[in-house]
Deep mutational scan, measured.
Amino acid sequence: KKKIKIYIENENGEKKTIEIEVEGDIDEIAKELAKKYNVKIVKIEP
């Protein structure tokens, strides 16, 4: 498992940072999160 930080922006332009532990393809997981929460991924840090 890797701990990563995902910087997101919602439709109101509010920026947030999510810190999660992931296993597998980080890009795939980030895309799923973006779709699920309707946010834009700004940056992903390993």
Score class of each variant (00 low, 15 high):
G13E: 03
E45Q: 06
N10L: 15
E28P: 05
G24L: 02
I29E: 04
A34E: 12
I18T: 00
V39M: 11
A34D: 02
E23M: 10
I4D: 00
I44W: 11
I26R: 02
A30H: 05
V39F: 15
I8T: 09
K1T: 08
N10P: 01
A34P: 01
E32I: 10
N10W: 14
Y7F: 10
N12D: 11
K43Q: 08
A30D: 01
I41W: 05
V22M: 10
K5P: 00
K1N: 06
K35G: 07
E14A: 07
E28I: 09
I8N: 00
I4M: 10
I41N: 01
K43R: 12
K15R: 12
P46W: 15
K15N: 09
D25T: 07
G13V: 00
E21H: 07
I8P: 00
P46L: 15
G13D: 02
K15I: 15
E11C: 13
I44C: 03
P46Q: 14
N38S: 05
I29S: 05
E9K: 05
I18N: 00
I26C: 04
K15L: 15
Y7K: 02
I20Q: 02
E28W: 09
N10G: 13
K16P: 01
Y7W: 13
E45H: 06
G13H: 04
G24K: 03
I8K: 00
V42Y: 05
I20V: 11
K35I: 12
K2V: 14
E21I: 13
K35P: 01
K43T: 06
K15G: 08
G24Y: 03
E45A: 04
L33P: 00
D25Y: 02
K1A: 10
K40F: 11
N12A: 13
A34R: 06
K5M: 08
E11P: 09
I41C: 05
E28Q: 14
I8C: 14
Y37M: 12
K40W: 06
K43A: 11
E9A: 05
E32W: 14
I26L: 09
N38L: 04
K36A: 06
K31P: 01
K5N: 05
K5A: 04
K31M: 09
K16L: 15
Y7C: 06
K31H: 09
N10Y: 15
I20S: 01
G24D: 04
K2E: 07
K5Y: 08
I18V: 06
K1L: 11
